[in-house]
Design a protein around this nucleic acid. Structure first.
Lengths: 259, 259
DNA sequence: GAAACACTACGGTCTTGACCGAAGTATCCG
DNA sequence: CGGATACTTCGGTCAAGACCGTAGTGTTTC
């Protein structure tokens, strides 16, 4: 009857560390198997199975059975939004201890966020687009200008539904940078373009992205983004994997162990 | 290090029914005292005190001490967004049982949602504005057209920062109607206007709104919204309090009792 | 058909934390 | 000052549920 209990049910589901890890791992839009999710969440398969059943039943995850495996993905963008929101709140939460966690440097640099890019690079791109008046952004919405539309056109970015949907730009507060990057259809189109033209590549089993040499060049010429550093402020090398501990998953020596 | 545990911490906080009730009660942007929150959450003051301390420590609630009372409110719009999002997910969650809960009819009709309006009326207003091309809406963003800007101007709605911020319109999925209504600066301005001109009034101790006779007339002439029914489909009376069980709080015969 | 693999169901252990009664600290009011 | 009000702290009880070992079902591979 009241709304409280209902949101509590969903929040409690997300509120378990193992389940939260599973959901986080799916934030980049991939589909993962039950085993993979068991690994990332750090629990035994039996336990993971129970968690996954609950998440599916609640409609947070969508399930596709194929052969002897079960593939899970986030059930809807709504779920991704909630997770985004939780990250933001979790980040500025205890005000005192807003620690810029070292490590995961690669993630801070560039990563996927459901269907678009996030991280330092994504924020820089958004900044640049705003600065050039290609996009208007504010906390509650975003909007592509005519100039922006032709900019993307020339660049060859496929805005897809551009003709059908006239508004499709959304700011998404970046949890590592605490500044907005681009989400929505425009954000998704940029990520697609970047992947397709080898500006960035997925890091194996992670939602981190590395910027390729091609990407470094293109980001410089296209957006005037130079030397966004991979680790600290020194040189122009971008996205070197050695820079930071990668939270990659190697499913080999995998002792689950109690959390 | 990983983001999972952090979002789990926040989600777990929201995931307790008592705390979720507290947060829900604060969704309309009011500030409430610890006692009031204890009552709405259905627990004893001692228990509530503990919950409130946790929520404040985590940065979900802001606290203002005044005399011997403590006033709590949501710490930021970010928190409100997360709660909105959870309501949406909770609503379409178990797909099978998307029950249109009878009761709380007044809430379904019109209510505040943090700083803007929600419910049937709000959805109707949004529909109308879109239909007249005063606003462009889609899932990821919203945008005021020039025509819309002058419409609000003529109407005397103060868009406030209109000159400074050029984009400030956001769709917010309505958990009772499952269709978007207007949030963001535009949504807030509409609610302000409606309250100021006595179109709607707050229901005591609830986030429900009742539409006044003035409001009925104005909604009809301004937006062409007629006979959005208060309970079922029969007459044009709008917002009669008798229609639905109001989730109002009367802090008298208040046996907390175990949940 | 047998073995390996992916996942699920069941049963028992153990930790977490929600809850309230009782008692303690501020604040207001007469 | 003394009593009422608003809230917090402490201590002990109790239920929920996360976890894994064991044992199952269904699927693929050889």
């Amino acid at each position: 009857m009241d709304t409280g209990p209902k949101i509590a049910q969903v929040a409690a589901l997300i509120g378990d560390p193992a389940r939260a890890n599973m959901l986080s791992a799916l934030m980049d839009g991939r589909t993962l198997t039950a085993s993979e999710l068991a690994y990332v969440s750090g629990v035994a398969p039996q336990t993971a199975s129970g968690h996954l059943a609950k998440l599916s039943d609640a409609g947070l995850l969508a399930l596709a059975k194929r052969g002897r495996r079960r593939y899970f993905r986030l059930a809807s963008p709504h779920v991704a939004r909630v997770l985004e929101g939780l990250m933001v709140v979790a980040q500025d939460g205890p005000a005192r201890q807003r620690n810029l966690w070292r490590g995961g440097e690669t993630l801070r640099h560039a990563r996927t966020c459901y269907d678009h890019m996030a991280g330092r690079i994504a924020v820089a791109i958004a900044d640049r687009l705003v600065q050039q008046s290609f996009i208007l952004l504010d906390e509650d919405g975003g909007q592509l200008t005519d100039a922006g539309r032709s900019f993307f056109n020339e660049l060859g970015v496929d805005l897809g539904l551009a003709s059908k949907r006239r508004v499709f730009c959304r700011p998404c507060l970046d949890w590592s940078e605490r500044r907005p990057h681009l989400a929505g259809a425009v954000g998704a189109a940029i990520l697609d373009h970047a992947l397709e033209h080898d500006w960035v590549e997925h890091v194996r089993d992670s939602r981190a992205l590395v910027v390729t040499p091609v990407g470094v060049r293109e980001l410089a010429t296209t957006f005037g983004i130079e030397g966004v550093p991979p680790t600290d402020g020194h040189d122009g090398r971008v996205g070197s994997l050695s820079g930071g501990r990668v939270s990659a998953i190697t499913v080999e020596s995998a002792p689950p162990g109690r959390r």
